[in-house]
Design a protein around this nucleic acid. Structure first.
Lengths: 276, 276
DNA sequence: ACGATTTTGGAACAAATATTCCATAGCACG
DNA sequence: CGTGCTATGGAATATTTGTTCCAAAATCGT
């Protein structure tokens, strides 16, 4: 009678991070109903703050009492204590950010501030989406290929050009031999591609012909090609040894590039570190 | 006895937007305590979903019953109904976004995914900060100046260059006469600046000499100069008729540019619309 | 297949929370 | 200086919500 069935640790989690750790630690070897609770909670932890026991239990398809037991196994005295943690943890991010956005939009459609609000929002969504969907394996592979290369050739035109130029800048700062193919003077510097070099190609729909051609050309010559594009079905994927897709949210005809730049920066800095 | 004191409209707000509209409409001519409620709720609407009547009332420094009356004036049957609206609309930035970030960082410092997590976070913070601190007056003024100009000359080097090049791209797409000063061939196209033109200069610390010089030169000749920079004390502010500052969060030696690009886009699209 | 042990569901209970109501305080107007 | 009206605070009440507990079912080991 004195020992608890499951290690209901003495102290409850003090933060959402601790909560997640304990959830992960405890979630194996748990009876069926309790495991249902754990799974549902893991997938919907954001709703703890705004739901009742009954609602969550219904969602997890268990009786309320099972959920209560689950709370206790997690180390809380009960559901209320657990909910308190999530209600208080909810403060960061937007103390009044969303209010502010609303205000900005009130300038009226087309006003500079309303546009700004839209682009800020698009950027934020893109970044969140990137964090959720990025292909870690492809990213690691891209870093590997570029780190092993002689010179990195960066190519991107039109809306991809700002990204390409920033990459070139960062590579230079990190002393990585890099060359920006910018099409100035209608020269393609195709013959600058030498064995052992790598190409980092960036293009979004509608894909620019020059970029695709250069990527294919490099591949035919046996160079490593890394593609940065918007869809896995992009024609760039055919030429690339590693393809990374960036889910960028557009507003109107233009994209914020936030996610693309974040990804490009990570890539460049990782390559720069790896080459030292 | 039949008429309500304040127009407690028959139907409650069906969305947060409607809620805000009604709040704005009703907030004037309201007795003292109720106005306290309105003010507090307006400033903390994000906490409605996760608080009790008592907590909110304490925050607004009114008795709970006053808050109840406020809910009814807003058209709800009571607090619970109002809270329901906010609980359903509650979709915080972390459906599992923060979990994901945590996982990405677990790759270890310096790993590509950890870097990505940092840059994503920096970008998000920058965007939020931009929304909160942008100077609406300066932005409107900048739009006015650029809309009235003949040709818009965009100048920005080094890390500002990606932004400048994107601006040039967007201006072109929107049929705004624009010229990108990119320093190719060591030419400065100073003599392309003609009376009636405007300069959009972008530079961050350490401020690039060429940009500052060009901006000052333009000003001396009586052209309108719009500055996009990082601090109000930036040397660029001396030459500019309108200065917009962008609070960009750096990670390591590099900046995400998210906020800068969002701002630049808004500016360009607003100018493009205004000129039609 | 039997008994010991764990798990489960739901009903009873306790606590928290929302809501109503009314006596009183404040205010404007005659 | 009343008089009638509105606003206010708090106590009483109703409702919802959380929590406990125990009998029954399932599971496991022998």
């Amino acid at each position: 009678m004195t020992d608890e069935t499951f290690t209901a640790s003495a102290r409850p989690p003090a933060s959402v991070d601790e909560f997640r750790d304990r959830l992960a630690a405890v979630t194996t070897d748990l009876p069926r109903r309790l495991r249902q609770c754990a799974d549902y909670i893991a997938a919907h932890s954001d709703r703890i703050a705004v739901s009742t026991v009954a609602e969550l239990a219904a969602g997890a398809d268990v009786p309320p009492s099972a959920l209560m037991r689950f709370c206790q196994i997690m180390g809380f005295s009960g559901f209320s204590e657990m909910q308190k943690l999530f209600r208080e943890a909810y403060a960061p991010g937007w103390p009044d950010y969303s209010t502010r956005l609303k205000n900005l939009k009130q300038g009226g459609a087309g006003s500079p501030t309303a546009l700004l609000a839209e682009f800020v929002e698009a950027g934020r969504l893109s970044l969140e989406s990137l964090a959720k969907t990025v292909d870690e394996v492809a990213l690691a592979e891209a870093v590997r290929l570029l780190s092993a290369a002689g010179t990195v050739h960066v190519v991107g035109f039109r809306r991809a050009f700002p990204v390409a130029s920033y990459l070139a800048y960062v590579f230079e700062k990190m002393s990585v031999p890099a060359m920006l193919h910018d099409g100035v003077g209608k020269l393609d510097h195709r013959f600058a591609l030498r064995p052992g070099d790598a190409v980092l190609a960036i293009t979004f729909a509608p894909y620019s012909e020059e970029t695709l051609t250069l990527a294919q050309d490099a591949r035919d010559r046996g160079l490593a090609v890394v593609g940065l594009t918007d869809r896995v079905t992009s024609p760039l994927a055919r030429s690339a040894a590693a393809t990374i897709t960036v889910p960028e949210v557009d507003f109107g005809a233009f994209r914020s590039l936030s996610a693309t730049i974040a990804l490009a920066l990570s890539l460049a800095v990782a390559v720069g570190s790896a080459r030292e």
